[in-house]
Design a protein around this nucleic acid. Structure first.
Lengths: 129, 129
DNA sequence: CCGGCCCTACGAAAACTTTCGTATTGATTC
DNA sequence: GAATCAATACGAAAGTTTTCGTAGGGCCGG
C-alpha cells in the first residue's frame, strides 16, 4: 500500500509544523516556519512545498473552502522511524546500537533522560537483564 | 577550528570505505563501492567525488605518487555524531531521548544489543539510577 | 462597479548533488 | 619513440531540491 516518499529537509520542517499544530492553512504554516526562525522562506515557497507534498501524498489538502487546509498524512513516529533507519544504514553500518551509543554519549542527553531511557529499557525488557 | 561541511549521501558512502579500509586509491574506493553493491558508479564518478571531498576538506589527498592516495580527514564517530545531532534537530524536535526510544523500539535492535545498551548506560551513569 | 487584498496556480530560476565523457599527461613495453 | 595502458583534470549534463516572481480569480469595503 505505501511506499511513502522520503520527506526532504524543507518538507520535514513543514511536517513538523503540521504535527505540532494540526491541520493548518498555508499562512499558518508559513508563519510558524518564520517564527521557528531556522528557515525564512517566502509565502509562495511554503505554498509550493505544500503542493508538492500533496502530490507526494505526504499531506492531504482540503479544498472545500477557498483557503485550503493541509493535514499531515504520514505520522510523526513512522517518519522518525524511517529517517532513523535510513541514518543507521547510511552512517552506522546498520547498527542501531552504535547510533544509540552515540546519542547517549552526546551532551544532548541529560542525566534525567538517561534515567528515562533506562526505564524505557526496563519496560521493553521485562525488567531483567 | 573549522566547520566541517556536511557530507552528502555519496560522500558518506565513500567515507565509509575509507574508514573501514584506511587510506585508499581511487581504484580501491571505486571497487569497494561496486563490491558493496548498493551503489554502482563509474570510475570517474568516484574520482570526481574524491576531488570534491578534497576541496571540502573531508579527505586528504596524497599526491606525492602518481597514483593519489586519499585519507579521511573527519573521524567516523564525529561524523556519526554530527549526522545524529542533525537528525535529532530536524526530525525529533531536539530530543535525543525520542530518537533513542525509536531506535530501541524498532526491530533493528536485538535483545543482545539491549543488554549492551544497558551496560553502556551503567558505565555512563556510574551504575546507579 | 472598483480597487485593493488575499488566495492558489504555474513555471522557471537558483542551488545543490551526482554522473560521466573527453582530454591530457605520465609510465611501460616492445 | 610509438603504441598502449592507467591515472588525473575538467567541464558539463542530468537529477533533485528549494526558491520565488508573476498571473489570475474571488472577495469585500466604499
Amino acid at each position: 500500500m505505501r511506499a511513502m516518499p522520503r520527506p526532504t529537509n524543507a518538507e520535514l520542517a513543514i511536517l513538523r509544523v503540521l504535527w505540532s499544530s494540526g491541520p493548518s492553512t498555508v499562512r499558518q504554516v508559513h508563519e510558524a516556519l518564520v517564527a521557528g526562525g531556522r528557515r525564512a522562506v517566502g509565502y509562495t515557497t511554503a505554498l509550493k512545498l505544500l503542493q508538492i507534498m500533496t502530490d507526494k501524498r505526504l499531506v492531504a489538502c482540503d479544498t472545500s473552502a477557498r483557503t485550503h487546509v493541509f493535514t499531515a498524512r504520514v505520522s510523526e513516529t513512522a517518519t522518525q522511524k524511517r529517517l532513523m533507519t535510513e541514518l543507521v544504514d547510511r552512517a552506522f553500518g546498520g547498527s542501531a546500537l552504535r547510533l544509540v551509543q552515540q546519542a547517549v554519549a552526546s551532551k544532548r542527553v541529560s542525566v534525567q533522560e538517561l534515567r528515562e531511557i533506562r526505564r524505557f529499557l526496563d519496560e521493553r525488557n521485562g525488567g531483567k537483564s
